[in-house]
Design a protein around this nucleic acid. Structure first.
Lengths: 225, 225
DNA sequence: TCGACTTTGTGCATCGGTTCACAAAGGGAT
DNA sequence: ATCCCTTTGTGAACCGATGCACAAAGTCGA
């Protein structure tokens, strides 16, 4: 038995990283249905990508496939999980318990696979003290203390736009380096901090653009020639 | 006075389209603060991008700047809005009125700028008939009728994963060609349909990957050498 | 009117990512 | 043991996006 493959290139392309969770989800589905082995072609279809891309993506983690056979589902699940860091437990704090924050707190996909909502924080005295999704909502004044006490390493910002930068600065100051931002603002952070942004309104605007194109584009009647 | 610029290239890069809403937001903020004119440099900073990129993006819409001066804020707002198709009114239906659907229905950023939540639909008899964000929740059996009656052209899927594909097929069958999908599944649609996907769990997983990297990567202790 | 200064718009080099297409590797049948 | 068949892993061409750097274009003050 040969030493199991390349020691995983220390520079996985960002585009690949963004697709690994997709593969992982597809693989989990297959594992549940009792599938033991899968070809790049089948997995690619399940994940909605091209099979050459899938193989190249997986090759960045090492050679975990068997030529002529495919990939072992269980083993691949483990390797991807490990690469993504899902074999450990991540404590997440949600700041801002409005409609969106509440939805996130209750969102099943959050809790599963390595993530645990460890704290809910809000500024509104009306909701502080409430229990949501089994958690007590704490006051924003306690932000730093809560983050430290619960070992929070990922913060989800679901505050109003106006409050986001200030909260962001505070959590960065206590050492948080991963932020998922739902507030419609461009956050300013040190280079060492990762911010991912989810902006519902931007997604809609992109759809509107394409929808309009299908209908003939702006100024379609005027701008003909 | 020269004929106002190039007739807008009929092929705006996807990457540019994705940034236009960002510029638009920054510009709205400036307009509110009474700023009449802005340089590419200032606007780029406000939008969190590089100024050369910003200029190149705007150049795809035509030459709307004045050398030595910058861009007229009002005019640029109008041009971008028009390009994105925000000068018209888009009727949006939200299918699935769970925590997330509710949050979306109440989300302010949705309603603003061209989008209007025109219908809420759910399968649960418990919530059908309820009024949320001023709208009556209708039964999923009415889906096709509601879409046609209200002129819905964009559908937001906030259903459980298991229901998403079926709902998707149904709305596509009535002619909807723009879908914003929050369900954690890969939707299968004809090429003519645009699907954008927002996946909270994937965003978290990407953050976890980078967070783990900062801490030394997987197998850091073992895999040294 | 002219010249100095500012800022746009873009040609060009570069980079990361995608896709093709195939040699190498392994399994299974005979 | 050998051959055939399947499927991986990857070299190489391609494609779109990014960023530099500068000429062109326009403003403003004298």
């Amino acid at each position: 038995m040969k030493s199991p493959s390349q020691p995983r290139d220390r520079g996985i392309p960002e585009a690949t990283v963004a697709r690994l969770p997709l593969y992982l989800r597809a693989l989990h589905g297959m594992a549940e249905r009792g599938i033991a082995t899968v070809s790049s072609e089948d997995l690619a279809v399940a994940a909605g990508v091209n099979s050459a891309k899938l193989r190249k993506d997986l090759s960045h983690l090492g050679s975990y496939g068997t030529r002529g056979v495919g990939y072992d589902v269980e083993y691949l699940v483990y390797q991807i999980s490990r690469e993504l860091g899902l074999t450990q437990d991540w404590a997440v704090a949600i700041v801002g318990v409005g409609n969106l924050g509440r939805a996130l707190a209750n969102y099943g996909g959050f809790v599963s696979r390595g993530f645990r909502v460890a704290a809910l924080v809000d500024a509104d005295p009306e909701v502080v003290g409430d229990t949501i999704a089994g958690l007590n909502v704490e006051h924003i004044d306690e932000l730093e203390a809560v983050i430290r006490r619960r070992g929070v390493s990922i913060v989800v910002l679901a505050t109003p736009a106006a409050a986001a930068q200030e909260v962001c600065d505070r959590v960065v100051a206590v050492g948080v380096t991963s932020i998922l931002n739902f507030a419609p603002v461009v956050l300013t952070v040190p280079d060492s901090v990762d911010v991912r942004k989810v902006d519902l309104s931007i997604e809609l605007q992109i759809l509107a653009f394409h929808e309009q194109r299908k209908a003939g584009g702006p100024l379609m009647a005027v701008d003909s020639q």
